[in-house]
Amino acid sequence: MYIIQTIINGLLLGGVYALLGVGMTMIFGIVKLTNLAHGEFIVLGAYLSVVLAPMLGIDPVLTLFVSVPLMFLAGFLLQYFLIGKAMKKGNEPALLVTFGLSIILQDVMLLIFSADAQHINTSYAVASIRIGELEISVLNIVLFIISISAITALSAFLKYTHTGRAIRATADDTDAAALTGVSVKKVYAIAMGISMASAALAGLCVGMKWTFYPSSGGSYLLIAFVVVVIGGLGSVPGTLIAGILFGMAQVIGGANYGLLISYIMLLIVLIVKPKGIFGK
């Protein structure tokens, strides 16, 4: 029974870990950029929900209707006016600009929200469903539903819409995409917008599950990295599988060894298959 319980918990949390990685993997795959500020984007998303929920007097989950568009816009503008400019100077300058952004964001959040631990409270935070001897937390189910529907929606968007096709084409070959009439600059901005929007979702999820601080970005970024590299850069389904593997490792390893297990997992993947399980 314990084993089944663990597997279910790992699976449910795996959705959240995949969500942490999915925004990062998009930027890797499409913009070909390592976004070191992604962790701070996630924390920013969490704070947005913390602020918006009491302000609008709604359930934290519903704040997504405000925070997701807001973060999309921020990502779009950020890429269009700042990161895109840095990318013209080369890969490393762009990497360092995102690094700069990460430390700026971290301290701006520290100034606004102080270093106190934060948590997004919901009425169902401690509720659980009993099935036979299994006890499944309602919160975990909510998180899983949010994550999986977001990732499914993103996959469908990439697959079936004009913009989605343009994004995939740009990821494949930027010059050829430009020759079919795609504005690469705009596609990059949209990709960053989506990435930040996914960070809003991920932020809400981690904020409901765990406590967070302005300085939590680093650890989220690292989780995102691990998930993304295990899954293969730029692969959305790979990210989902990797997220679930990561979730299992966390649940099995517990608070002390969970992270360590996943780091070791990552290093093994890197040695055996340096481009990730689903990498090409």
Binding site: H162, R165, V182
Partner: peptide
Amino acid sequence: RCFNRMSVHDNLLMGSF
């Protein structure tokens, strides 16, 4: 310079972007 990871159909649809 086809979009290698996309289907032939999607490649063609990209042309009408």
